[in-house]
Amino acid sequence: MPGLVHVSTTINGNPTDFLCEPRQSLLEVLRDVLGMTGTKEGCNDGNCGACTVVFDGRIVTSCLVLGVEAQDKEITTIEGVATPEGLHPVQQAFLENAALQCGICTPGFIVATKALLDREPDADEGRIRHWLAGNLCRCTGYDKIVRAVLDAEDKMKA
């Protein structure tokens, strides 16, 4: 492999080091180098949101970030959402509200939703639909996803 670069970063709270080619995206690094396959690829050009991760506090599509850009950053992926005690309320709400069918978009939706509710715990339906417009789902028609997000708001306040 020509010119591998050493990158030190933090993923889901864990200091992590990896080697990658500069041309590899963060998505490729997560999936192929680190074996963290929870983050999904749907389009590889930033238009479906399946690869959404939190990158220094903002959600981004990890297909449009280079792995080498992760140096000294804080990254949260779907693997970092649940705790040893159990599911995050957003995950529990998606499960209970049947907000997933095939499930391929689900990790991206959950990461994006958690980022929204961490900032705006009272987001209304319109705001939820706006925030999630970058996450495509082809199975559900979004109805049950929006309901799940509203339910997660209640769960997080309880």
Binding site: G46, G49, T52, F55, R58, I59, V60, T61, L64, V65, A112, H130, W131, A133, G134, N135
Partner: peptide, 9 residues
């Protein structure tokens, strides 16, 4: 511009 994700970058 783009999505919330895109606006982050």
């Amino acid at each position: 511009i783009g999505s919330i994700q895109i606006q982050g970058r």
